[in-house]
Design a protein around this nucleic acid. Structure first.
Lengths: 148, 148
DNA sequence: ATCATACATTTGTATATACAATTATTGTTG
DNA sequence: CAACAATAATTGTATATACAAATGTATGAT
């Protein structure tokens, strides 16, 4: 991906600025490819993320604040995000009996089944996104990202 | 930034997946800091980007499609983005006399003045974001990003 | 000159997200 | 134990964005 070409910049951009633009362009591309991979399932990346968190609970319910703190991109409104998953039958919600302020959210069998299909689709998308990277590249990139 | 800690993951994440999550977490942080730097001016990153594009025109007007192709993150609706800048008095719009399908958009003096203030604020934000990077790191990172 | 097509922008509508205010429940403290 | 603060989730509202359809203008073929 060539930065200057992509944003039609004639003059050279200072290295720091260029890096941040570059990061944004790459992230846009990643978002685009992953959103497309999820499109057939009619779930957003955020919804997918919630399903994965719930699967990670291994049957234990999670409440909204737990979900929120584990999400890659935090949401200001997890209630309505979960509402959408309930509508699709992927999760169930009920009030926590020990602390009735909380809710308990669990992934359903149908949600688990759908999620495993999504995993396959996402896996393919990730392979495409990372096709030019070998193990050493990835390690190096992770090291550099740690500096942020 | 520690990935596993940030998303409270107990088990180790495969390197490829980890990299993509890492990218997203870093981008969220960048977005957050830059959005905050722009907050006093009440413009979004997108609006700021349009202003910078218009300044780059050196007095020449730009039409919507030109703006759109130069934006870092493309928008499906540049009309309404420009509307907001007009309301703030940062840009002017009129129909192109040679081709009345197009519109001509120019940045105003007030827009230029505001933009130079934003540049200062953004510059500081960028310095903070990149404080741990030296020139070699940045070059290396740009090289790796090219692989996407 | 007329018609179909392509182009550039605008508008309508549905959905998504941010932020603040509200409700309901629990915990604390004088 | 009553009053107040803290916690957890929900709701209201404003704004943002995506996508499709509509509008107005120009171009090319016949």
């Amino acid at each position: 991906m060539n930065v200057e070409e992509t944003i039609r910049s004639s003059k050279k951009i200072p290295l720091g600025q260029r890096t941040l633009i570059h990061m944004q362009l790459v992230q846009n591309k990643i978002d685009d490819i992953t959103a497309n991979a999820l499109k057939p399932f009619e779930v957003s990346m955020q919804q997918f993320n919630v399903l994965r968190i719930l699967r990670g609970q291994k049957g234990n319910p999670a409440n909204l604040s737990t979900i929120n703190e584990r999400m890659v991109t935090k949401m200001s409104n997890t209630t309505r995000l979960v509402d959408k998953l309930i509508k699709k039958g992927f999760v169930n919600r009920c009030v926590c009996p020990s602390n009735r302020r909380k809710v308990e959210i669990v992934i359903t069998d149908s949600g688990l089944e759908a999620l495993s299909q999504m995993d396959k689709a996402l896996g393919k998308a990730h392979d495409i996104i990372l096709k030019n990277f070998d193990k050493k590249d990835l390690e190096q990139l992770n090291q550099l990202l740690d500096k942020f």
